[in-house]
Design a protein around this nucleic acid. Sequence first.
DNA 1: TTAACATATGTTCATCTGTTCATATGTATA
DNA 2: TATACATATGAACAGATGAACATATGTTAA
Lengths: 125, 125
Amino acid sequence: MATNKEVEVPELPETEFLAAREDVVKRVLSQQPDDEILYDLAELFKVFGDSTRIKILYSLFENELCVYDIARLLNLSQSSVSHQLRILKTSKLVKFRREGKSIFYSLDDEHVREIISMGMEHVEE
Amino acid sequence: MATNKEVEVPELPETEFLAAREDVVKRVLSQQPDDEILYDLAELFKVFGDSTRIKILYSLFENELCVYDIARLLNLSQSSVSHQLRILKTSKLVKFRREGKSIFYSLDDEHVREIISMGMEHVEE
DNA sequence: TTAACATATGTTCATCTGTTCATATGTATA
DNA sequence: TATACATATGAACAGATGAACATATGTTAA
């Protein structure tokens, strides 16, 4: 779906650069994914960039939970949890199933665990 | 450095939960890293959560570049690039070396590439 | 159908964030 | 040392964001 632009690389005159040689300029420009993709990527990380959402994702690391229990476990308001779950849902980071009055959320994707784990490694130094 | 809290898990009465069984509650609480770690983790992802910074990081994926050339390549102002590089520097995502009047930035860490690549996989579906 | 419960949504508000513009700092060269 | 150049920093402002509160929606059971 996402395609890097491999064909039409804008030809900036090399002389305008300070140090970068022509091959480097070309490489960077051709490797750079489309702006739209980069925007989406930033949007994705933005979702991970809130400690409430991180806590929610972590609580779902190895089990599904309903909204009420997430709120209870993490000492958050129901409203706040629900709002954040909506964002996580929109980003396809969590999925859900209904069971009676409750709705159980779980991680949608193995990527979620991988991304968080990778971040953890960096944070833990 | 970062340690999960394995010892003192607050004992919430199970009856207050809706659906989660006691073992699940205990597991979640014992797995959840310290708040401080989770906060740092969110802070890290927040840094990735801006398309300007993502673009800058991508431009440094396979080569070092000086500030002026980054700005030129990405069509950004020098000031903006410099401000963002400072944030990336603070988060230990980029390192730099001086060469005459120019300062060359590069990715600090293999984690950076891995985190971005992982995010890309999710975005690309 | 009504009441109670679980979750979702809309709105408001204080706070945070990124950009721009102006200026400062640091470096090399004439 | 004076000047130009490369980068960094400070201040101000507009736009984004998360929390809280009130309320709506959807589900079950009486």
